[in-house]
Structures are given as structure tokens and as C-alpha cells.
Design a protein around this nucleic acid. Structure first.
Lengths: 345, 345
DNA sequence: CTGAAAGCGCTAACAC
DNA sequence: GTGTTAGCGCTTTCAG
């Protein structure tokens, strides 16, 4: 049961009685090998289970077929869903994934992360970290100097960086509009932490939609949570004190909405009759909350897949010597999923 | 704004007016460089932001400081939590992560995955896939022939493979014992899919604990779910029909337990008075279910971290020429978190 | 202390 | 069609 050591192309060549070059040609499907030689060599390769070293190839070919992925908060489901889309699509396209996770969402010093990816010759980099605080400062300054293409999975600081992201503002609008359509008029908002860009955008969607409807969203109609169910509980209680006439609430994510439903349940507050609730994210469980939660759905797997495709497209067009034509961003549109928590009609 | 191309050691050497060896020595902190030379070279390296190619190093040093990680089901929170622990610890120890995700939990043909990792010269491999069906067949046959060490994050097919896993059987026992201690006597079980090893082990913990208490767990006291909240709803309804006198249920994960609580809520079934409920996993949300869920906690981040440390230990002891002493497995112990859903006393 | 030569495993460019 | 030579960026070995 001796662990088998790695075979080299030289050993295979020796066994096949040809030069290493011929092995290389067979491996790469080059045309200039006689059919008999090709077949014989291929057979030996198969028998030995020989696999050429991608490391050596990377060195000489100046491409590694590897993408660097920078993520954060894998213990939450959102980042993992995106990563799921990324791995699936990358595998499909023949690229490997070198993964880095930031210790915190708002890690400032990201230079070592990039250097470590570049030292391993990644062909491109995906920045799959939400914009929080100033965690994109380094990016906006340094990204033009990166030797490989970069695609963000969040709206970028620099408008000319390629990115793939959902329209959070629109998400806030459709959620709020839906509550208006259901006849609610005193619509509060339980936002995410406002140092998150997405939280601000969702909030603004709520605000603008109310204004457009001639209603006046005041500061005390809104409370800031921290995305957790616990904060949702606390925030709803505060919101009800500040805004007792509130008849509906747009909650910036499903986890906090779960806390909201919880409080309502404990206090015997009828949902959706007394309080309409709309969440955001469409977690798998949100259909099993009580009552089932109306929410704004984003397909994060698709976002990850789309970003991989965009990145690979840029990588390969660069390789073909095409000029660095500016890539248009991809904006994805969230979708309202209507369930009982907002159905008053 | 020209993207900067990669610098080579040769260019740095030229600028510093020394040979590439000297640069290499400075980079690797070798003693045999004069202090002045070292300082001058270091300064130039810093100014240029030069980063040596890990790819070239891997080739010559026969080590890449990269771990291969094979996972599955990243769209679920469990695998992501484990991955979170893995990335954290690997980063800390100076290893990079090459990530592969199986398309399904029970993917049979995993050979290409391993070959692809080996082609990239990973120093070791983590198998972070739960045992489902026969998805470990290839492993049990081929793992002894792997040229690099392997650590599993699930109880292995071969008892002599190193692994790090929670004791699911014990988890089933403590959950059931707790319900007995609370005075429940007719304790049903809502299991996970029984082609999952962990589901079988949790079930057996339940069974044996009841037997030890002189109770007789019958086949109709148990229903199989598929881990989802939806299946939890359906399964509980079936279980109540099959086993009307049931006064408590041990549910094999928190998601299904959420479905159980849901049904109870709809049907006005009092929890914990009429039905005690214990879950498994201790999801962050389970404290916010209604009523808050008693559950069996596993710290999956710790599991990931422990596995990384074990793997690195094996890698480095191999490098030091130490003999392949058989590594003892690491068994982690789950912990009962008592909340209201099971507190009848 | 420093440099020159060799080579990690592979492929591009050129011979034959 | 096939082999030879050179070299990707780095480190090791051995001279000086």
C-alpha cells in the first residue's frame, strides 16, 4: 500500500519509447502525431493514470486555469450560495478555484490576499464581498494596477469596474409597492446596518416609493438592525413604540423578518391583518415561517455563475489579444415572492 | 493605468546589482547574506512590491503550501460552516485552499476531482463530504494510493484513515435522554434520510436510549424526512397518525424541527406541554423559533479547524521524514442546548 | 559571503 | 511525424 508518487512526462516517454515532446503532443491533442503513435502513447498514459502537472504548465503557458475568489462571512448562507454558484460554473468551464475568506466583512488590509493569489498565478479574481464601510478603498485605488482581470459581485466604487449584482434599490421599491398595493399606508422599515451599501439601497427604495405615493417616510419610521433574527425582535419592538400607527413593515432580510414574526406571535399581533410583513432574500425556510413570508428573491447561485462567466470571458478575450474594451456591468433583477404575511386583501 | 505585469527575480536582481541567488537568500531569510546587502535588497523588493512566484517555488520545492478541499452542498449552511473553519485555520497556518465542490452529495465518480487537485500539487486533501450512500467507495479503495495525506471530516469507511467528526450516535443519545429526563415516555423520531450515515447514527442513539430505559421503539414510532422544513411538516403529520400517543419527538435536524413547530402552531398543539421537541445542529435561528428550540449543538467551525490542523501536522511530519505513524481519529462531542421546546418540568 | 550551473515538469520553436 | 534545444521563475548544489 505504498502511496504512489507523481509520474513525470519523462518517465512516461521512456516507457513509451518516444520523446517527451510526443507525449506532450498527445496530451494536448496536437495534430502532428501519427495515429499509431498517438494510440500507443494514449494507452500507456491511461494505464499509468498519468496526469500532467498543472503547476509546470502554468509556469510555461502563463495561465493556470485557476480563478482567485475572495469571500467573507461563509458562516452565513448568502456568501455560501454565491460560492456555490461560483464553484459549479468554474468546474463546468474547466477552471479551479483558489479560495480566500476575509476574517471580517470590513477587513481593510486586503493587499496580502491579492498578492497571495497573484503569487499563485490566478488568471482572474472574483471579489465576492459585500460593500461594507470602506472595505473597497484598496480596490478602488489599486485594482487598475492588477495584472489580471477582476470582477466584483457587488456594485463597485469605480463605475468602470466590471460587476454582477442585484438591484437592491429596485428590491426595496417592489417590496414597498406591494405593501401599498395591499392597502397598507403606514409602512415602516427595518433596515440592515447602514454601513452596508445594500442596506442603504434597500432603505432608499422604501423611502422613494413612499414619497412617490405621497406619503412621508420620517426618520422615526425606521430602525436599524444587524441582519440577525435577534436584532429583528428588538428592532420591531422599538419600531412599534416609535411608530404605533404602523400597519406594515418592510424588513431588509428574512432573518430579521423571522424575529419580527416571532414577536408578533408572542404578542398575539395578527399578521397580515394588523401588520403586513415583507422580507428580503427568499431563504429556503422563509416559506415555512408562520405565516409564510412574502419576500424579495435574489438567486445568488445565478449571480455567482454569471460572475464566473463574465470573468472567464474577459480572461479569454484578453488572451486573444483583444483590446481591453470596457465591460458592461450585469445588473440582476430581484423578484417579489408573495406569500401570506402581506396578503391583507 | 497600465496593469502591472509580474516581476521576476531576475529583474529584481538586475536592479539590485546582485545575482538571483542573493535575492532568493534574502527572500528565504537565509543567514549567509551580509547585513548591508540584505537590507539593500530588501528595500528594493519592498519598493517594487515584488512577490516571488509560488508556482515556480512549488515546482522546485515539491510543496505548494496549498490544501485541496472537497466539499458538497455549499448551498446548505452546514458545509459552509465547516468550510469557514477550514479557510480560517488554513489562512492562519499559511496554507492556501484549492476548493472543489461535488455536484451532488452522493457523487460516485470522484477520481477526476482528486486528479485535478493532485495535478496542482496540493500538499494534502480534506474530504469534507458527509457519508451518503456509497459515495466513499472510491476513497476506501484508492486512498492508500494517494501521494499526499488525506483527512476526512466524516467517520471513514476504513477505520485506519485519519478523520475528525462529531459523535452523532452520542448526540442522538443525549437528545433522547433529555426527553426521558423531562418525563416524556412516548418519544418518536423524525430521522434524516437513512442513506446518510449521520442520520442512521442519530437514529440509533434514539433507539438504544429508549431500549436502555425499558421502552420499546417500534418501527412506526419513526418517520424519515429529507432534512428540509417541508419534509418536517409532512413527517410530523404522518408520525402523529402512526403514533397518536406520542408525547415528544427527537428531530434529526433543526430545519425539520422548524417544520414540526410550524405544524404544531397551526394545529394549536401546545409545545412543550403536549409535545416535547428536540432538534439537532443548533442553527443560529433555532433560538428564535417559537418556542425556542432545544437542540444538539455541533461546532462545525471547530471541526473544520481541527481537521486542517491534523492534516498540516501529518504533512509536516511526513516532510521531516518521520514514519507514517497511524494517526488517531479525533472524535468531537456534541452538546445539548436546552431551550423551551422540551421543558415540561 | 556570493555567483554559476543545473534542474523542478512541462511546452514553444525549431530542426530533421 | 518526431526529436532536440531552450526556457518558464525559482532554489539547490557546489565553486570560489
Amino acid at each position: 500500500m505504498q502511496p504512489s508518487k507523481r509520474l513525470t512526462i519523462k518517465q512516461v516517454a521512456q516507457l513509451a519509447g518516444v520523446s517527451t515532446q510526443t507525449i506532450s503532443r498527445v496530451l494536448n491533442g496536437r495534430p502532428d502525431v501519427s495515429p499509431e503513435t498517438r494510440q500507443r502513447v494514449q494507452q500507456i498514459i491511461d494505464e499509468l493514470g498519468y496526469q500532467p502537472s498543472e503547476v509546470a504548465r502554468s509556469l510555461i503557458q502563463q495561465r493556470s486555469c485557476t480563478l482567485g475568489v475572495i469571500t467573507a462571512g461563509l458562516k452565513y448562507i448568502g456568501p455560501s450560495m454565491i460560492l456555490n454558484g461560483i464553484t459549479t460554473e468554474a468546474e463546468d468551464k474547466g477552471y479551479a478555484i483558489l479560495l480566500k475568506e476575509l476574517p471580517k466583512f470590513d477587513t481593510g488590509d486586503v493587499e496580502p490576499i491579492f498578492l497571495s493569489l497573484l503569487a499563485r498565478h490566478v488568471d482572474g479574481i472574483l471579489w465576492a464581498v459585500p460593500q461594507v464601510g470602506d472595505n473597497q478603498d484598496w480596490l478602488s485605488q489599486q485594482s487598475p494596477r492588477l495584472p489580471v482581470p477582476l470582477v466584483l459581485l457587488t456594485a463597485p466604487p469605480h463605475p468602470d469596474l466590471p460587476y454582477v449584482d442585484y438591484d437592491n434599490y429596485q428590491g426595496g421599491r417592489i417590496a414597498t409597492q406591494h405593501l401599498l398595493d395591499q392597502g397598507y399606508r403606514a409602512i415602516g422599515h427595518l433596515s440592515g446596518p447602514l454601513d452596508w451599501l445594500s442596506a442603504r439601497q434597500r432603505k432608499e427604495g422604501w423611502q422613494d416609493t413612499l414619497r412617490d405615493a405621497g406619503l412621508n417616510p420620517a426618520p422615526h419610521h425606521r430602525v436599524e438592525g444587524n441582519w440577525s433574527a435577534a436584532s429583528g425582535e428588538r428592532a420591531l419592538q422599538r419600531l412599534m413604540e416609535q411608530y404605533p400607527e404602523m400597519d406594515a413593515v418592510f424588513v431588509a432580510n428574512d432573518q430579521m423578518a423571522m424575529g419580527v414574526l416571532q414577536v408578533a406571535c408572542k404578542q398575539g399581533l395578527q399578521i397580515p391583518q394588523r401588520l403586513g410583513v415583507v422580507g428580503f432574500d427568499n431563504l429556503a425556510e422563509s416559506a415555512y415561517y408562520w405565516p409564510p413570508l412574502t419576500t424579495v428573491a435574489q438567486d445568488l447561485r445565478t449571480q455567482g455563475q454569471t460572475a464566473v462567466n463574465l470573468l472567464i470571458e474577459i480572461i479569454e478575450s484578453n488572451r486573444n489579444g483583444a483590446p481591453q474594451r470596457p465591460t458592461s456591468p450585469v445588473v440582476l433583477h430581484p423578484q417579489l415572492i408573495v406569500r401570506e404575511s402581506s396578503l391583507r386583501l
